[in-house]
């Protein structure tokens, strides 16, 4: 026990938090599953076994070891669909939140650093944007953009950049007041260099935290949109599609419904734990308090 405690103390600061370890572990596991899906999945997720539809999981007396989690109403392997579904979820999570982050953080830096009319303009735009309910906005966007995973990503970026912009801007405003920004200007730094070398590193912990939380949100949004059939094509496995399909025969077998929901829940919880843990370890204020107690 002591040896374990000692080992944990030797880890870099962010990894010493239990939340980061658990959350990070879940996220890492889902990522590995997504990347190696073709090798991990026991069956082709779209292959239909019409003689063995709605089969219970393998541990049930009626189950078949060929389908560890059973099959859906078309006789497709649930486990394989879950594994392939992780791909869609992770692609949307990573690409959409990176896109939202890039737009939001860039505008936040411009607004917070330069201030004045440009700040007023960007802040008003964010206010206006955030006054639309996000679900309605994304549904409208999906109707306009059309169906497809890439459009789901685009919709998430267009809806959620404001989260980054608003929060990061207030942090930039605080950093802007520090003397080291004035010092950098006196040392001959241009605006771009000051932003890149002085401001951005200071707000990076916040951005990392927001990224983790945004990825969790993106997974949920993708699941919602694929549930209503606005996301992937019919021959691609996604967790939201699985929930939508299983809903119709849930009285015959509940596993087809429970398992994708569990996958979504665990993944989102992983991102949230990671984000929360990173916030606690990277936030200098919380860190100092803990130092003072030590």
């Amino acid at each position: 026990m002591n040896a374990l405690a000692w080992r944990i103390r030797r880890l870099p600061a962010p990894l010493r938090s239990g939340r980061v370890l658990i959350g990070g572990g879940i996220v890492l596991a889902v990522t590995v599953i997504a990347i190696f899906a073709p090798w991990l999945a026991p069956n082709d997720p779209q292959e239909q076994d019409l003689f063995g539809n709605i089969m219970p999981p393998a541990w049930d007396p009626l189950g078949d070891p060929k389908y560890p989690f059973g099959t859906d109403n078309l006789g497709r392997c649930i486990l394989s669909q879950l594994i392939y579904g992780a791909r869609v979820a992770m692609v949307v999570a990573v690409v959409a939140s990176t896109g939202a982050m890039v737009i939001g953080v860039t505008l936040a830096h411009i607004a917070g650093y330069f201030g004045g009319w440009i700040d007023g303009l960007i802040t008003r735009l964010v206010d206006l944007w955030m006054s639309f309910p996000p679900v309605v906005l994304s549904l409208i966007l999906m109707l306009g953009l059309g169906v497809g995973v890439s459009n789901v990503i685009l919709a998430i970026i267009l809806v959620d950049w404001t989260r980054f912009c608003r929060v990061v801007r207030s942090d930039v405003l605080v950093v802007r007041q520090r003397d080291y920004i004035s010092a950098a200007q006196l040392l001959g730094f241009g605006h771009f260099r000051t932003l890149r070398r002085e401001v951005l590193p200071s707000v990076m912990p916040l951005i990392i935290t927001l990224m983790a939380l945004e990825m969790g949100i993106a997974v949920v949004v993708e699941a919602i949109l694929s549930f209503v059939g606005l996301s992937v094509e019919a021959d691609v496995s996604a967790w939201g599609v699985m929930v939508a399909d299983a809903r119709q025969y849930m009285y015959q077998s509940v596993w087809g419904l429970i398992l994708p929901i569990a996958a979504i829940t665990v993944t989102v919880m992983g991102f949230n734990l990671l984000g929360d843990g990173l916030r606690r370890t990277l936030d200098p204020r919380l860190r100092q308090e803990r130092h003072a107690q030590a």
């Binding site: 520090r178 003397d179 080291y180 004035s182 010092a183 950098a184 006196l186 040392l187 001959g188 730094f189 241009g190 260099r193 070398r197 002085e198 590193p201 200071s202 200098p284």
Partner: peptide, 27 residues
């Protein structure tokens, strides 16, 4: 200029070496 409060005037994420020669990084 030398600023009053080094706590605020030194970027906490730079090391001493990088802080001292920060001027050599300028545009």
């Amino acid at each position: 200029m030398i600023f009053q409060d080094p706590q605020s005037a030194l970027n906490p994420r730079r090391m001493v070496e990088s802080l001292l020669t920060q001027a050599m990084e300028a545009d």
